[in-house]
Design a protein around this nucleic acid. Sequence first.
DNA 1: CTCAATATACTCACCCGATGAGTATATCAG
DNA 2: CTGATATACTCATCGGGTGAGTATATTGAG
Lengths: 179, 179
Amino acid sequence: MSNLSPEFALLGLLAEGPSHGYDLHQRLVTDLGHVWHLSQSQAYAILKRLEARGDIKSHTVEQDKLPARQKLQLTSQGRRRFQEWLDGGAASNARSIRLEFLTRLYFAQKNEPEKMADIYIAQFDQVQASIQRLTDLLAHLPPEQEYNRLSLDLRLRQIHLICKWLDEIKTKFQIEVPA
Amino acid sequence: MSNLSPEFALLGLLAEGPSHGYDLHQRLVTDLGHVWHLSQSQAYAILKRLEARGDIKSHTVEQDKLPARQKLQLTSQGRRRFQEWLDGGAASNARSIRLEFLTRLYFAQKNEPEKMADIYIAQFDQVQASIQRLTDLLAHLPPEQEYNRLSLDLRLRQIHLICKWLDEIKTKFQIEVPA
DNA sequence: CTCAATATACTCACCCGATGAGTATATCAG
DNA sequence: CTGATATACTCATCGGGTGAGTATATTGAG
């Protein structure tokens, strides 16, 4: 998968009730516009793909005066895929943590706040694993590889930074983590 | 452009002398494999595009035993484009700084070390501008936009981190910056 | 000696991400 | 009444990225 588009964010918005492309795009921009940057046309493209995959189904609704809409609904498969994404994974690099973790938290807070702790913990564990992986890589990197070293070094520090940021999020949302 | 592929890295390697796809890919992986992650097929795809654009020209060279090669050379346009990239721009977000700035520095150190300071300064200035931009955005963000705020906040901190990292690079390479 | 792994060199089919422009109608403010 | 903004969606085009396939040559382990 290694999915870095707001595909699941759209699925999640649609999980709150049937809607249509224009509206989903608007809502995503309003609520998560500084998380995901999504053009209108790209939103439609993703929705089309989701429909082709069977996560969404659509039918045309005529309107009195405005152009017809494609009313979209989640299929049960789509709902399952969204739940699996929400419960299942955790992102592993800086960018995808910012995007995916925040999106997971957003939907959890809205719909099932009791899940926030699980999401937090899964992400925290993943971050620890990344620190381990990058530290090992750095330790075994031949010393003459200066530029590779600088790159890995920055990545490692970025992950450490995310650790601190996660900790503040834990406090902010009063997430209880078992010792 | 907002180009986030190792296009210019390939151009830069070719600037050191005519070569062919397989070799360029190998060298990129060896020297900058933890900066750019580039599959072989993607390397060929980029080279093809560069040829279509007229930055590269190729001709077939038969070999005794091994498969024929497409020998690649920079055109004068390609050389110019590479120089413009090297001298011209500076990346503005965390990821592209890691990728592009390090790549610029790599080629400068190899071929024209006196340029390192200019590249450093251009990047530093760009980072200051990003800090300004993100700080302003955050200041004007409505307080109810929690998730947008968290995202911008992380981005801002990442840029601050890069500031420190840049400073260490300055020391490491003994770059002299006028006050 | 032989066979399998590795190296050389490149191609192809496919999908996803992203932009920018275009289309058409409706409403609202000045 | 006119021009900006909102509603609603389409299309062409490009670039990024994967995974598998093709074909031959060399090397090394048993």
